[in-house]
Design a binder for these strands. Structure first.
Lengths: 333, 333
DNA sequence: AACTCGACGGCAAGGGGTTGCCAACCTGTT
DNA sequence: AACAGGTTGGCAACCCCTTGCCGTCGAGTT
C-alpha cells in the first residue's frame, strides 16, 4: 500500500536519494545518463513522489481552492468549469468550497484551508473588505465578480453591460425601471445598481430599487409583487434565478410578459433560454472568467516572469435579447 | 508567514512537543489541566497544525475527491452539493474533478490524486470494471450511479423507476416506446435500457433503442429525428438534457408534445420545470445521493465501528409528471 | 606534469508532526 | 514503609523528500 519511496529507487538504481530527487525536480543538476537510469528504475518500481512530503518542505502543493458564495446557483457552474479546466491544464488540483451565502462559513472555510492550498479564487465573496485583505496577506487571492483596490480580480464589465440593458429598455420606450436588488453584502448587487442608476440618469429615465432579495427562484414571488406595486414597466432582476421566479409570479397574476411588463436578468444561465417567455439577460463568457481567475492566481502562486502588481481584469458582457423584453405598455391614464 | 509550529507552542507552554501534539490529537493521553494550558497558549500564538506534516505520517489528510464524468451536466450539481455539504460537516475537504466524459482523463486524474486524497467518490464513472477494482485497492472508493460487485455504491432504483415510467406511458395508451441511449460506456445507460426493456416486456409494449447519443441538448436534434423515424409515440431520453434537445427539435418540426409524441427524461434537473412543455422526468433525491456516497466513503476512510463489507445503497426514485407526457395519439391508419 | 575548474553525486540537516518506549511520579495497598 | 499499578510527560526515531554544502573526478590549460 505505501508505495515505493525515493529510498527504494535509490537503492535499486545504486545512487543516493538526493540524486533520485534531483532526477525528478532538478534535471539539469544530474547527468543525463544517470537520470535516465533513475527514471527507468522509478517507473519500473511504480514510484510516485509523495505530495505531502513535497509540500511539507515547499509549502506548496499544486492545489488551489475556489470558494463560491452559493453553489446552488447554476450561474457558478460555468465559472467552476472554466476554473477547473484551467487548473487541470497546469496540473493543479481544484478544491471546491461552498460558502452557503454565509460570510461566517466562508471565512471559516478559508481559514481551515489556508495552510493546505496555494491560493484562493473567491467567487462573489460576501466577506467585508478587511477580511479579504487579511486573507490576501496569508495566501494569493483572486476575486471573482468583485473588485477591491490592491487585490487581483476578474469581473464582467457591468458599467458597460448595465448601460446596454438600460439603453435596450429605453429604446423600447420604457421610462420607469425597477431593480430587484441582490443580497446586501454582494458587491455585484451594489455595482449593478449603481451602474443601472447612472445609465438611467444619463438617458433620463427613472430607476428605483427594491429589495434586497435572496437570488432564488422562490424569492421571485415577493420580488414580482414588489415590482408591480412600484408601477414600473420594466423589471431588472439581480440575476436569472430571481428573474425566472418573477416570470412565474407574473404568469400567475396574469401579467403578460413582455406586453405589460418587460423582464431582464443577469448571468445568462442555461435555463434562461428555456423558460417561458425566454429571458432577456446580460451574460458574458463565464467560463473565461473562471479560466482567467485561475490563470492570474497561478501566476501569483508560481510566478513565471517578474512579479507584477495585482491585475484587475474586466471582461466584456453581452446582452442576450430574448422574449421577455418588448415595447413599453402604453400607460393607462 | 510560516505560522508558529508545535515547537513554539511547546516552548511557550513549557512542555515537550509530544505533549502539544497529544493535547490536540490524543486528549486522553494528557492531563486535563496541562492540556488546557497548551491549548490556551496555542490559540494565543495562533497556532494551526500543518496539514502536510500531519498527512506525511498518517497518509491521511481529511480530503476526498469526487470525480464527475461531465461537470457540464447540471444533474451533477445536486450530487456535488450533497457531497460537499456532507464532507464539510465532517470537516473533510472535497476536491472536484471533471473527467470530461473521457475514461483516459478520468483515470489519469485519479492516479494523480491517489496519493493525496483519502478516498474517491466516482460519479457515473466511465472506466471499465478492472480499472475500478484496481483503484479500489489503492484507496477507498464509492461509486455513484454505478454498481460493481465488491465495491460500495449509491444508485437510484432504476428498476423500480423505469417500471414507473413504462407504466405511466402504458396507462396513457402508448404501445411503442423508443429509448434514446446514453454514452456507450455508461453503466447508467445500460441499466436504464435493460430496466425499460424488461418493464416494457412485462407490460406487453414494444421498446426499441437508438443511439448512443452524447447526452447534451445539442444532440437532441439527431435523437429526435431518429425517434420519429422509428415511429414511436413515446420517447424516453437518456437524460433531461437530451430530452430538452428533443423537445426543441420536435417543436421545430411542428410535432406537438404531448399530443403527437410524449417525452420523458431522467434526472429532474432544474430546467425540466422551465422548458416548454415542462418535462416529465424520473428524478430522485440527488443531494441525498451525494450525501450518502460521502458518508459511506468516510466510514471506509475513518471507520467508526467495525469494518463492514462494501454497502450498496439503492435510493428510491420519483416520477415527476409534467407537461411532456399525455395520451397516445390515435395511430394514423 | 601540475593545476584549475566545472560537473556530478553524496552526506546530512531539516520541514512539522506523531508515536513507541521509557522514566518519573503519584496513589493507594498491605 | 515497601511496593504494585496507573498516569503523565519527555526523548528520539520516523514519515518522505529537498537542498546547501562538500568531496571527488575527469577534462581542459599552460
Amino acid at each position: 500500500m505505501p508505495g515505493p519511496t525515493i529510498y527504494d529507487v535509490a537503492a535499486a538504481a545504486g545512487v543516493a536519494t538526493s540524486t533520485v530527487s534531483r532526477a525528478f525536480s532538478n534535471p539539469t543538476r544530474v547527468n543525463a545518463t544517470t537520470r535516465e537510469r533513475v527514471l527507468a528504475v522509478a517507473t519500473e518500481l511504480g514510484y510516485r513522489p509523495n505530495p505531502h512530503a513535497r509540500a511539507l518542505l515547499s509549502g506548496r502543493n499544486h492545489t488551489i481552492a475556489m470558494v463560491v458564495s452559493d453553489i446552488t446557483n447554476p450561474h457558478y457552474f460555468e465559472l467552476i468549469r472554466g476554473a477547473e479546466m484551467r487548473a487541470r491544464a497546469s496540473e493543479y488540483t481544484l478544491v471546491l468550497v461552498n460558502a452557503e451565502e454565509s460570510p461566517r462559513v466562508e471565512y471559516e472555510q478559508i481559514q481551515r484551508l489556508a495552510s493546505s492550498v496555494d491560493g484562493f479564487v473567491l467567487a462573489a465573496s460576501r466577506l467585508p473588505d478587511e477580511n479579504l485583505r487579511q486573507i490576501a496577506v496569508q495566501r494569493p487571492v483572486v476575486l471573482m465578480s468583485r473588485e477591491l483596490a490592491g487585490l487581483s480580480s476578474v469581473v464582467l464589465d457591468h458599467v458597460q453591460g448595465c448601460r446596454q440593458v438600460v439603453e435596450h429598455l429605453a429604446s423600447l420606450g420604457h421610462q420607469d425601471v425597477v431593480y430587484l436588488a441582490g443580497p446586501r453584502n454582494s458587491w455585484m448587487a451594489a455595482t449593478r445598481w449603481s451602474a443601472l442608476r447612472s445609465a438611467a440618469e444619463a438617458l433620463g429615465i427613472r430607476a428605483t430599487r427594491i429589495g434586497p432579495f435572496t437570488p432564488r427562484v422562490s424569492q421571485g414571488g415577493a420580488a414580482a409583487d414588489g415590482a408591480l406595486h412600484a408601477g414600473a414597466t420594466a423589471i431588472v432582476a439581480h440575476n436569472d434565478l430571481l428573474a425566472i421566479g418573477v416570470l412565474r409570479r407574473l404568469a400567475q397574476r396574469a401579467v403578460r410578459v413582455p406586453d405589460d411588463v418587460s423582464v431582464v436578468g443577469f448571468d445568462n444561465i442555461f435555463a434562461a433560454d428555456l423558460c417561458t417567455p425566454t429571458l432577456t439577460t446580460l451574460g458574458g463568457a463565464h467560463a473565461d472568467l473562471g479560466r482567467s481567475a485561475v490563470e492570474i492566481l497561478l501566476e501569483a502562486v508560481a510566478p513565471v516572469r517578474t512579479k507584477e502588481s495585482a491585475p484587475q481584469v474586466v471582461l466584456p458582457t453581452e446582452l442576450v435579447l430574448r422574449g421577455s423584453t418588448g415595447p413599453a405598455a402604453r400607460p393607462a391614464v
